[in-house]
């Protein structure tokens, strides 16, 4: 039964589009990374990288559908240099017979800690056992504006040139634009929102909340409206190491647990 549903899901085009995973923190906050700033910005809105002051490396493992071997693994690295930050990302989605890989290189620049801008280049690779593999390129661009210490407004476009694999392959690369904001209500409460408009689907409104009980420990939650998903998670920081967990719930796919680790040099 489970495999049947997996097949049904995989054969649905929209859902099959490679989901870019931006670490457990951003996932737990309802995938509202467009106006957040951290190392995983490299997989959400690369402009956020420009706010970093120290190199950070991070990995993440997402069990996309519980009870199957379908998963998403990512490894990212950000290296700030003056007013600029360079980012590398690698993500692999699928299972043994089906793999979708994405390699990204990001360049982000910080203008006086008020404006942040970025460009990102991706190489996508798709391999299906018995059928071979194919590859293609895409670009992303992002902006973040920080008018005050507590507010960030962000915008991000993904694959505006609508590049895709060659016509023989029945798989798509997502094309979408997103805009959103994050607001720090106190040193404990961070609220974020995002509106994502894709070329295929109607707008998806998302919102997320992070509550830091103590500076080292945070609880998070979020929702997205289309598809309707609920998210929850936590984060714990010890010295240079940060551990984040997230759980998302999809009405049809059920729960997807995720864990991320980050190390700040």
């Amino acid at each position: 039964m489970l495999w049947l549903s997996v097949i049904v899901i995989l054969s649905t085009k929209g859902l099959f589009a490679q989901n870019i995973n931006a670490g457990a923190r951003i996932t737990a906050m309802g995938q509202t990374g467009v106006a957040l700033q951290e190392v995983w910005s490299v997989q959400s809105n690369q402009a956020g990288l420009a706010s970093l002051h120290k190199p950070i490396a991070a990995i993440s493992y997402l069990n996309t559908i519980v009870g199957t071997e379908i998963n998403t693994q990512s490894i990212v690295f950000a290296y700030p240099y003056g007013h600029q930050t360079f980012g590398w990302s690698m993500q692999s989605f699928g299972f043994s017979a089906f793999k979708e890989r994405r390699y990204g290189f990001a360049y982000a620049r910080n203008f006086n800690d008020v404006l942040f801008a970025s460009l990102n280049f991706n190489y996508h690779q798709l391999s299906i056992a018995g059928y071979g593999h194919t590859g293609t390129y895409s670009v992303e661009a992002g902006l973040q504006y920080k008018p005050s210490e507590s507010l960030i407004i962000g915008a991000h476009v993904v694959n505006p040139s609508a590049s895709s694999y060659d016509a023989a392959v029945d798989a798509i690369l997502p094309v979408f634009a997103e805009a959103g904001s994050s607001y720090l209500f106190s040193d404990k409460v961070l609220l974020s929102t995002a509106l994502v408009v894709s070329s295929k689907r109607i707008a998806d409104f998302r919102t997320g909340l992070e509550y830091s009980v103590i500076p080292q420990l945070a609880f998070r939650g979020g929702v997205s409206t289309h598809p309707f998903k609920q998210y929850a998670g936590f984060g714990y920081a010890i010295d240079h190491l940060c551990i984040d967990g997230a759980l998302s719930s999809h009405p049809a796919l059920g729960y997807s647990p995720q864990i991320s680790l980050a190390y700040e040099f």
């Binding site: 209500f185 409460v189 609220l191 909340l209 939650g221």
Partner: peptide
């Protein structure tokens, strides 16, 4: 139910 700050409250 939590009053996370004087401006934000949340309910689960």
């Amino acid at each position: 139910m939590g009053s996370l700050s004087n401006k934000v409250s949340a309910v689960l």
